[in-house]
Amino acid sequence: MHITTMLKYYNYDIVFQEYPDEVTLAINLTMCPNRCVGCHSAYLREDIGEELTHERLTALIDSYDGTITCVGIQGGDNDPEAVLAAGRYIKQHYEGRLRTGWYSGRTWLPDAATLAASLDYVKTGPYSAKFGPLSSPTTNQRFCRVEADGTLTDMTQRFKKKGVND
């Protein structure tokens, strides 16, 4: 069974900073439509990589069984419904053992029920050099925990760099 023919991934890694307090399998999706000026992963705009099927997603997750606590979908703005479907699949298939997250460059979110059924975390907002990344005090991006009722708890402050007097 396929998630969609519209989601492709180029690479993945285990990361520790993108989702606070999580050991995350971050899957980098391609075909990004956002074209943010200054994007650090501009190659992810291309139609490259392997199709992300349920089978491939399961194989990636299972290869890190017992190591990861979260699966982060990085990108996928070309097909948000497929990203949400992937999140639901992970939540159902892994019966709450893994949290899910989505790094999106968009500024909108789906309705609360859809969001809560699919994701535990969401980062929204396009990258803008003028405002900086999540760690910048002037960032336009937001990182939120998705509560069970679909409301959002802003966690962006967790990314701010601390000074020596903080």
Results as ranks from 00 to 15, higher is better:
E55M: 06
Y19C: 09
A85F: 06
I73C: 01
S104C: 08
H40D: 15
T138V: 02
W102C: 03
A129F: 09
L60E: 00
W108A: 14
C144E: 02
T156G: 02
E55I: 07
F16V: 05
L25W: 02
K91R: 11
S128E: 12
L7M: 01
T58A: 11
D154R: 00
V83Y: 04
T107V: 08
K91Q: 10
P110K: 14
Y89A: 08
S135T: 12
D77K: 01
T156I: 07
K161W: 00
K91C: 00
T67V: 15
E22H: 11
K91D: 01
Y12G: 03
I73D: 04
Y10F: 14
N28H: 14
D149K: 03
L57P: 06
W102R: 12
T69K: 06
L29C: 09
W108K: 14
I14M: 07
G125F: 00
G38N: 04
T4P: 09
H40Q: 11
F143H: 12
P137H: 05
D111M: 05
T5L: 12
R158K: 10
N28Y: 15
K160H: 13
G105C: 10
T4I: 11
T139Q: 10
G75F: 00
T124M: 09
D21Q: 13
T69R: 09
T4N: 12
V122F: 01
Y12C: 12
R56G: 01
T69H: 09
L152N: 01
G96S: 02
S136L: 06
H54A: 13
I48L: 15
L109R: 06
